[in-house]
Design a protein around this nucleic acid. Structure first.
Lengths: 204, 204
DNA sequence: GAAAATTTGTCAAATTTTTCACTATATTAA
DNA sequence: TTAATATAGTGAAAAATTTGACAAATTTTC
């Protein structure tokens, strides 16, 4: 299926493949068959092959896939080969957790600054904390790719509007509210509850 | 479509409907048409109607849906009308963020205890912190519905196995690793990176 | 070196999901 | 009271996704 555009469904699975391949690479695994990827991720081997084939087919019949090669290919598709400057707005528990989170690569995602009402909070080495009033100033003088909203629900919409007005086009929202923003803004919501509800919902 | 089983795709959207309906209810909105739900959630009105209809059709032609009624119905489907006792294993940034998170209803989800190597950490009022060695003891004496894993990557698999051995069947995993657990364990992964990667991936 | 085993790539079928188009019902305005 | 408007429910078409099956390529075994 080379040359075709990669479908939404495939893209959504890429982060999982990527993370698993990172794990394998760390362990020094060099090659892996689709069947093992499948069982680790609880999907079918056919799906893994179909997915991987949709952007090129890097496997080798009889052998499996080259872990390093596949990992790099996926990183490239996901845009992880460059770096992104980020700011966090609202430095409460969630903001602090993100700033300290070890799950994403430190090279690709650079937390430049955090903004909060309380500027006396303790922040990790290297991160600067400013008053939330300074957002516009800061954005006028610094090139920022992604803004993360971790404010309480009540503040989220107005903060989002200010960010957009200041030129931000990619927003990662952790506030538990549906933001109403222009179509051209790329908005990703991380609804922590959603995943939890899948545990309380009992299938069948 | 009454009577039919609710499809996977619909279930995954229910938490979003639910959160939006909570918002509306808070604002005192009594009725809402599918078209408004659709634009708020950036989906089509047709999909909203189809989804809601799949578990009963609580709307009224010409009028829209009753917010309170719909919210309760979804809460019921998602299993949010009872409460769940939870423990957090690994009380770092992420564990602390969850314990303090305001996004999910405090009635339904009760954080009973946290476990960490360092028992001197500060925990919120009402939550007890134990040494991670005490997990088995604790689970033998307390009825717990859901365990949340927030340990570093390296500890996650072994912690998960201990939880399963101690009788836990529902695990919410925040550690950035694919856990390998028996089929009968309900496992939900929250991969914080996944959502972020959707921002760095540029469509088209 | 031949046979057996492994494993990908890929086509096509099966299934699921989404969208469309229209009917029925309710409300509002004239 | 009637016409216009708004809106849910629903069957069916369309689109997207997943699964199954198998040929082709490669490695391993004997």
């Amino acid at each position: 299926m080379k040359g075709k555009t990669i479908s939404e469904a495939v893209i959504r699975r890429l982060p999982r493949y990527f993370r698993y391949l990172e794990e394998l690479a760390e362990k020094g695994v060099e090659r892996i068959p689709s069947s093992r990827i499948a069982s680790a991720l609880r999907v079918t081997a056919s799906q893994v092959r179909q997915d991987l084939c949709s952007f090129g087919g890097f496997g080798q019949q009889g052998l499996g896939y080259n872990v390093e090669m596949l990992k790099n290919e996926i990183a490239d598709i996901l845009g992880l080969t460059r770096s992104y400057n980020m700011i966090i707005v609202g430095f409460g528990n969630v903001g602090a957790a993100l700033a300290g989170y070890m799950g994403f690569s430190k090279e690709a995602f650079i937390f430049k600054a955090a903004f909060d009402i309380d500027t006396d909070k303790v922040v990790p080495e290297g991160l600067k904390l400013y008053s939330i009033d300074k957002i516009e100033d800061y954005l006028a003088n610094n090139q920022i790719d992604i803004a993360v909203i971790c404010t309480p629900k009540a503040a989220a919409q107005s903060v989002a509007e200010r960010l957009v007005a200041a030129g931000i086009t990619k927003i990662w929202n952790f506030a538990p509210i549906e933001l109403d923003l222009p179509e051209n803004i790329t908005l990703e919501n991380t609804n922590m509850s959603a995943s939890l509800y899948m545990l309380t919902y009992s299938r069948r």
